[in-house]
């Protein structure tokens, strides 16, 4: 009986959708747009999180040492730096090793063909105890250690980016919530219109002895179908759109920590894909309960 009910629901839902094709297509388009923006914000939020993580983990002060400084002096300098109260750790980075890693990381730039000699100096990377103390630490390094050639750090920009990422995530979450609500309202309205357009049919169903479940079923399926097709459309836009964006970033800003992990992207697509039919089901359920008092 359950199987025959489902068959009945799907058949009736398709008939219903086919009858109000224009409304059906308009709803799908609206839901597809909402879910695309919804998915887009999830991806933006994930990327901001990734930037924030990247910034935190990479928040280092790179201290390059003067050229031709003997190994003994470099060791002494590293020991001195690691003893400083604001420094969490100090790691020596050999210039040949650094150059090899650099070339390996950015293979597509084909640096080996362009530059013959290693342009990098020996360096010591410092991880700091507290981000807010970076400026003071840099000032004292400049004063106290003449063997340092240069101090490289992202300073204010990193701090601002971290704050920006934090607030963007909050705003992103609010927007996602708002969009989901908007999508729900669209479905409620669409199903309400189809219910009102078929009120006579519903009355006839009641008169011939259809149960409330049987009357509700086709409308619930209609909501789910609208939500599902809207979500699939949104997923296609998101998948190809995001693929294009990551491609552009890889080409023009390879250092940017854009989220490109396929598993993460597919999880987002799965969330969007599942949201469509779920919102469709919920929206049509609310709509039928209000319109038909079933």
């Amino acid at each position: 009986m359950i199987f025959s009910n489902i068959k009945f629901f799907i058949y009736e839902a398709i008939i219903g959708l086919n009858r109000s094709r224009l409304m059906f297509l308009t709803s799908i388009a609206t839901i597809a747009v909402s879910l695309t923006v919804f998915g887009f914000f999830i991806l933006v939020s994930l990327n901001l999180h990734s930037i924030s993580n990247y910034m935190s983990s990479k928040f280092e002060i790179l201290v390059t040492v003067q050229e031709n400084l003997p190994q003994q002096d470099i060791k002494r300098l590293r020991a001195k730096l690691s003893r400083m109260p604001l420094v969490h750790s100090a790691t020596f980075v050999d210039k040949d090793k650094a150059w090899a890693e650099f070339k390996k990381k950015y293979t597509h730039l084909e640096l080996a063909n362009l530059i013959d000699v290693n342009p990098l100096p020996h360096s010591i990377t410092l991880q700091v105890v507290e981000l807010n103390e970076v400026k003071g630490l840099v000032a004292s390094l400049k004063k106290e250690t003449p063997t340092i050639d240069d101090i490289i750090y992202s300073g204010d920009l990193s701090e601002k980016l971290i704050v920006f990422a934090k607030y963007s995530q909050i705003i992103g979450l609010c927007l996602v919530g708002f969009l989901l609500l908007a999508t729900l309202l669209i479905i409620i309205n669409t199903i309400r219109l189809t219910v009102l357009a078929r009120i006579e049919e519903v009355t006839i169903m009641q008169l011939v002895g259809a149960t409330n479940g049987l009357i509700r079923g086709p409308f619930l399926f209609e909501g789910m179908i609208i939500g599902l097709i809207g979500a699939l459309t949104a997923n296609l836009i998101l998948y190809f759109g995001y693929q294009y964006i990551t491609q552009v970033f890889f080409e023009f800003a390879p250092y940017f920590p854009i989220v490109s992990d396929k598993a993460i992207v597919f999880t987002v697509l799965l969330i969007v894909g599942a949201s469509g039919p779920l919102i469709g089901l919920l929206g049509s359920n609310i709509s039928i309960s209000r319109s038909l008092k079933l």
Binding site: T203, L207, G209, A210, N212
Partner: peptide, 18 residues
């Protein structure tokens, strides 16, 4: 919930056919 089952035992004909 039992009304549909009652209605299955009563056929109804209308002036406007429905």
């Amino acid at each position: 919930r039992q009304i549909p089952h009652l209605r299955r035992n009563i056929g109804v004909v209308f002036q406007d056919f429905k």
